[in-house]
Amino acid sequence: MAAGGDHGSPDSYRSPLASRYASPEMCFVFSDRYKFRTWRQLWLWLAEAEQTLGLPITDEQIQEMKSNLENIDFKMAAEEEKRLRHDVMAHVHTFGHCCPKAAGIIHLGATSCYVGDNTDLIILRNALDLLLPKLARVISRLADFAKERASLPTLGFTHFQPAQLTTVGKRCCLWIQDLCMDLQNLKRVRDDLRFRGVKGTTGTQASFLQLFEGDDHKVEQLDKMVTEKAGFKRAFIITGQTYTRKVDIEVLSVLASLGASVHKICTDIRLLANLKEMEEPFEKQQIGSSAMPYKRNPMRSERCCSLARHLMTLVMDPLQTASVQWFERTLDDSANRRICLAEAFLTADTILNTLQNISEGLVVYPKVIERRIRQELPFMATENIIMAMVKAGGSRQDCHEKIRVLSQQAASVVKQEGGDNDLIERIQVDAYFSPIHSQLDHLLDPSSFTGRASQQVQRFLEEEVYPLLKPYESVMKVKAELCL
């Protein structure tokens, strides 16, 4: 049975990233139509530049190519590739079939990587351009969430054990800070992308030097003109047959890092959902379990974690691919890159769409948070109580021993009897502590235990987050809708 299948058929496997999760716009960027249309555009740009620099290419040939950029006979191309065992030459023939007058000058002087690699770089750039505003929107939604809850005390956790208090907004800023680093890295790697350009079979530009009869300047002009037509500021000066596969490492490393950030955020949300302090959106008709109707599973956060793990592992592909590119190139890269580049971007696209949807509907339960604080705060307040007693004339050592005994009794009630923490009640009825009984409410005010959390939130948002989001103001209103 021949390899390949009808990918629109229910009898043929289709990647869930495309069929179930990723956005239509990201799927289109990695589609065959987008790819092969870009090949034709690159052939047109090459012909236009070659004509401008004096090669015998007519206006009629150029116009014929322009008129057929979208006229792609995919069936013919597939048949040609089956016959020739070469995808680029299959599309040269297919393009030439609908451009008979231009057929002889299509791909003039070029090698397969002229269309293959340059198209990949265009796709990487455009895919990054799709991700950047999506990530900015996630940051914006979380920034709104953090600002609104900047002063809401909550129990902090280290080692997932109760620690000092923080605020809900401050905790959210930990998430935002990681995503801001990801946004900066995505922008950097996007701006650092260079075009492969017009380089020939081993990167020496020998074929173009021959076409222009040894004119170095025209060869350099050709490279520059096509690079500018493709919208790049610069091209690699040095290439082998391909652009260095280190570029793929750079791009997928940034995406993998984004995956790590999203995994951490969504894990926190899942843990908070278990504590009943916070939940992701839950639709009115949504079913959490087929057997347990009360369940409210954090399905979206779980999906993000599941896909983020996949995204983090994909960076190993370009690392290994770059390491086995012998001399000017081997074909070890080809099949692998067809999979890992598309999957990385479709996965990143999915987790950003999902995280935006989550961040637009996060639900906080202040009463649950308050109750958990009441359970733990008495123990945390013991040092403040000791200091207040010393100020009232008591002995630190005597007070410490009193607190120690009462704390152990209260802990026994919590752990052995399943009761509430009654340390404060014990202190309130103990005559030894009568000098500070009137101060206990103040000493137990949760806001006095959150330090500068709310001020940190305000400063972080104003100095770091809002300036970073400013270039994306025009796209901030787009909502994230999930079908599944």
Rank of each mutant, 00 (worst) to 15 (best):
R137C: 15
E383F: 05
L443H: 00
R452A: 12
L355F: 14
L165A: 02
W175I: 06
K229I: 01
F460E: 05
I176K: 04
L108R: 01
L311R: 03
D120L: 07
E50T: 08
K402M: 01
R296G: 02
S407G: 09
G116D: 15
K218S: 11
M26N: 00
S151N: 13
E213D: 04
H310P: 01
M76H: 13
E250L: 10
H91Y: 07
V88P: 04
A348G: 12
L275I: 10
Q356D: 06
S434T: 13
S359T: 10
P56W: 05
V189T: 11
M380G: 03
Y34W: 10
L346C: 09
S290R: 02
E70F: 14
V475W: 09
K415C: 07
I385T: 03
I139Y: 06
P281S: 15
R234M: 15
Y432S: 10
Y432A: 08
Q320D: 06
D87W: 02
S289H: 02
A22I: 11
L319Q: 00
E280L: 00
K35G: 03
A102T: 09
L132E: 11
D216I: 06
E79I: 12
L331P: 00
P366H: 10
T239F: 03
V226P: 06
G259M: 04
D182N: 00
P293Q: 00
V413D: 06
I265G: 06
R452M: 10
I373T: 07
L362S: 08
T201C: 01
D182Y: 05
D59K: 13
Q428P: 00
D422I: 08
L108E: 01
F36S: 13
S257P: 08
G156R: 00
L314W: 03
E462Q: 11
E60P: 09
Q286L: 02
G54S: 08
S257A: 07
P133Y: 15
I106D: 00
A308W: 01
M380W: 02
D317K: 05
Y432N: 10
L484I: 14
V413L: 10
H217C: 13
F232I: 00
D248N: 02
K82G: 13
K264G: 06
L84Q: 14
L377W: 02
C483E: 12
L121F: 05
I62V: 11
F208Q: 02
A127G: 12
L307C: 14
S434L: 10
F236S: 08
Q409D: 08
D349G: 08
R396I: 03
S257C: 07
I123D: 00
V138H: 09
P56M: 13
L271W: 05
I351M: 15
A410F: 08
R190Y: 07
A2I: 10
L131C: 11
N185Q: 10
Q205F: 00
K170D: 01
